[in-house]
Simulated scan of single mutants.
Amino acid sequence: MHFEHLVQINDPLNPLLQALTVEQVWHALLWRAEKPQDFQEDITDVVIHERGEDFLVRSFRLGKLHVRDHIEWEHGRSIEFRTQPNDEHSGGNLTITIETPDETQLFVRFTYNTPLPETVAPGSDDASDAYFASYVKSAYHAADVDTVRRIRELAATGLLSH
């Protein structure tokens, strides 16, 4: 399944929306990689297994689900989470890219690629795969909007100012 969407960070037409810098958003995305429990309260037992200049390997628990990710980034531009498959889930990739079409606009693009089927297989009358894909896309979108909400909260407290 492929799913991609944009979340607008800065909107020059909305003066009530606090403008954030690319650096603030970037710092928050790295924070999310290193401390995912600060972005989703159900995450526990976070362990950083390996760290380099442009990557880290981590694991955590999400309820009963065990997740292990290899995360790589291009500083200030994008971060990719490659979740390893295991007996509990099929794995997948999430790439988050910072986009600045001009000096007043800032977006974050979330791109998911998973082994989940996107549509009903040809010749099948079972619509459960398509329904499940639709549900997962909706859950991803809600989680991403929540990520941006959390980034705004962190920025408002001054924790992203470096």
Rank of each mutant, 00 (worst) to 15 (best):
N14C: 12
T157V: 13
E88K: 11
N10V: 04
E23S: 10
K35D: 12
L16P: 00
R109F: 00
T44C: 06
E118S: 12
S90W: 06
N113Y: 00
G158M: 07
P122L: 12
H27E: 07
E53F: 05
Y140A: 08
R152Y: 14
W31H: 15
H70F: 12
Y135M: 13
T104S: 12
E4R: 08
H70T: 11
V7R: 01
F60A: 05
D54G: 07
G52N: 04
A142C: 02
T21D: 09
I48D: 02
V108K: 00
D102R: 07
D129T: 12
S138C: 03
R149S: 08
H162I: 02
S161G: 05
L20D: 03
R149A: 10
R149I: 05
S59H: 05
N113G: 00
E41N: 04
R58W: 01
Q84D: 12
S78A: 08
P117C: 03
P101A: 02
A19Y: 10
D144A: 12
D45A: 13
A156N: 09
Q37L: 01
F132V: 11
E72R: 14
T100P: 04
D144M: 05
W31P: 01
E50P: 06
I9W: 03
H70C: 10
A155N: 13
R51T: 06
G76L: 10
D11G: 03
S124C: 05
V22L: 14
D45R: 10
Q24E: 15
L94Y: 11
E153D: 08
D125P: 01
M1P: 03
E118G: 15
V148A: 04
R152K: 11
D42V: 09
L106Q: 06
F60L: 13
L160M: 06
A155K: 11
P101W: 01
V120L: 09
A28I: 07
A139F: 02
I79C: 06
R150L: 09
N14I: 04
L30N: 08
N14E: 11
Y135W: 09
I151A: 02
E80H: 09
E72L: 13
G52R: 09
F60P: 02
R68A: 08
I98L: 14
G92M: 05
G76V: 10
D146Y: 04
